[in-house]
Nucleic acid binder design. Structure first.
Lengths: 113, 113
DNA sequence: TCAAATAGCGACAAATTTATCACCCAATGA
DNA sequence: TCATTGGGTGATAAATTTGTCGCTATTTGA
């Protein structure tokens, strides 16, 4: 997988990484502090979320705000690039809702290991 | 990564797997025979494309037509579910086109290992 | 008879991604 | 003083995904 300057790939690569889509969704929903994100997406290891938040910031999807108060307060916001991923996530969800059942029935046959 | 009945995830998981997005794109473009797909997506190992075509068929994204002629002729077509991924891929491409430069400049700093 | 084209599979290795574990620092409240 | 909250890191292990290699089969054309 490395048709790396392909526009489609760039977008997919961002959304497909571990918890990114969920993170982006929650942040656009107003859950902007790391500790709250940890609580909300509690199945994801803390370390991983922290790392992803950093990556997404570097990529220009998120913007980090650090308030110089104590206890330290940090917030992440979507950049314009990040905001424009939301309608795409909505489309993906629509597609998923529509075909989920069919999809699950077709792929959950034998194995189940 | 296993919020597995999540609609968004299901769609992303399909598109993010190795050559799937490209395969779907080519097929919707009229490149429907395995041998032609191999030639078109020549950077991808033959074995991998074959496997993915099978997976996409099982998932209900592709439909396989085998013509009982020799030399054996096989064609893959998009199902309705598959066709409905095309506009989403277009949106992803649009997003990528718009933010690609910015993205690349922000992520191609140090490392380069 | 042999090479080439078409379609495909199994087993294993390499690479990448995710997760785990144990830490650091600062400040607050009991 | 000690546990708790909030933010974060480094090293390494586990898991998953991708890729490699070598095969099988059939038929056509040289």
């Amino acid at each position: 997988m490395d048709y790396s300057d392909c526009s489609v790939r760039i977008a997919i690569d961002i959304l497909s990484v571990s918890w990114n889509a969920w993170l982006i969704g929650e942040i656009s929903n107003g859950v902007v502090r790391p500790c709250d994100l940890h609580r909300t997406i509690s199945v994801a290891p803390k370390r991983v979320l922290t790392k992803q938040l950093g990556e997404l910031e570097k990529m220009g999807i998120l913007e980090k705000k650090v308030y110089p108060v104590l206890p330290l307060k940090v917030e992440y916001y979507l950049t314009d690039a990040g905001k424009e991923l939301i309608p795409i996530l909505d489309k993906l969800r629509e597609w998923g809702d529509k075909y989920k059942e069919e999809f699950i029935s077709k792929t959950t046959d034998k194995s189940e290991k």
